[in-house]
């Protein structure tokens, strides 16, 4: 025989071994990171195919948004632009990443229907693709932070390194929610618009355009909102503070909850995905 080890694929409906199969899926999905990366990259290049600026549009459209909102809201909130705009830049980029990840998560399995129904592939590859695609988009936007910081003379602080675990937490959440939302959105087609409206609400209640300290004595309660906790774990370090222990505990707590729910759901219903999409 030409093959040293022959792959065996066995399934017994009486003993489904769901946990092992889900674990194999996770391992196989992570092992195929090259595929997820290639697909994520082609998602971006296809979107800007034939355009002159190409993926630079990602940077440019964020810059336009920041220019418009930065000056307007600085005026509305009566804050100095040089104090508001650097903060808004970080805030909006982190928010856009989170928002886009959640939006992509809702369609990550239904969008891959063609592949899912035709060939066996770990489903976690599709979740990894969502995370990587949004990491690429974030990487296009982050240089704006450097530009704005330079223009307004904001010096980077050592706490900026704390943003790295913040990004890791967001990536884990993005991965977990892609699995969870990807599955329930495949089964119940009303979920994506519901998620869309919830994210609109989240934009206004999660201190994206207003600063947390404007809330006065309500401020300590903000980490109850998972969106705020996850955002603040990235934004505060870049802005030169640690964010406080409560924010970090909340960010870890929400990540753990989301991961646990997603995993339980994935183990139980993984076998049904091909019938749902």
């Amino acid at each position: 025989m030409s093959h040293a080890t022959i792959p065996v694929h066995a399934f017994d409906a009486a003993h489904p071994r769901r946990r092992e199969i889900a674990l194999e899926d996770l391992e196989g999905g992570l092992a195929r990171w090259r595929l997820a990366w290639a697909l994520a990259r082609s998602d971006i290049t296809h979107r800007y195919r034939g355009s002159i600026l190409g993926p630079l549009w990602l940077t440019l459209s964020t810059a336009i948004m920041l220019g418009a909102m930065g000056f307007l809201y600085a005026k509305l909130f009566r804050i100095d632009v040089s104090a508001y705009l650097p903060w808004l830049t970080v805030s909006l980029i982190v928010w856009n990443t989170l928002n886009q990840t959640i939006t992509d998560a809702t369609g990550c399995l239904t969008g891959a229907e063609g592949v899912i129904r035709q060939m066996p592939l770990p489903y976690t590859v599709h979740a990894l693709r969502v995370v990587m695609r949004n990491a690429i988009i974030a990487a296009h936007n982050l240089p704006l932070v450097a530009v704005i910081f330079y223009i307004f003379g904001v010096a980077p602080h050592w706490t900026a390194f704390l943003a790295i675990p913040g990004f890791v937490l967001m990536a884990v959440c993005g991965f977990a929610s892609s699995i969870f939302l990807g599955m329930i959105c495949a089964r119940f087609r009303d979920i994506p618009p519901i998620v869309g409206s919830l994210m609109q609400v989240a934009f206004f209640v999660s201190a994206v355009i207003w600063k947390p300290d404007m809330l006065g004595w309500w401020e300590p309660y903000l980490p109850i909102n998972p969106v705020f906790a996850l955002m603040e774990a990235i934004r505060a370090p870049i802005m030169g503070t640690t964010g406080g222990i409560v924010v970090w505990i909340a960010a870890f707590f929400w990540t753990a909850i989301l991961t646990a729910i997603s995993w339980a759901f994935f183990v139980r219903f993984r076998g049904r995905i091909a019938f749902w999409v």
Partner: peptide, 23 residues
């Protein structure tokens, strides 16, 4: 691709699938 609702299936060997050329 599909998980059976009943019964057993055991497949030994690497699979090449030509089910949909565009997949």
């Amino acid at each position: 691709v599909y998980e059976p609702v009943a019964g057993r299936l055991r497949v030994e060997g690497a699979i090449g699938s030509l089910i949909d050329p565009a997949a």
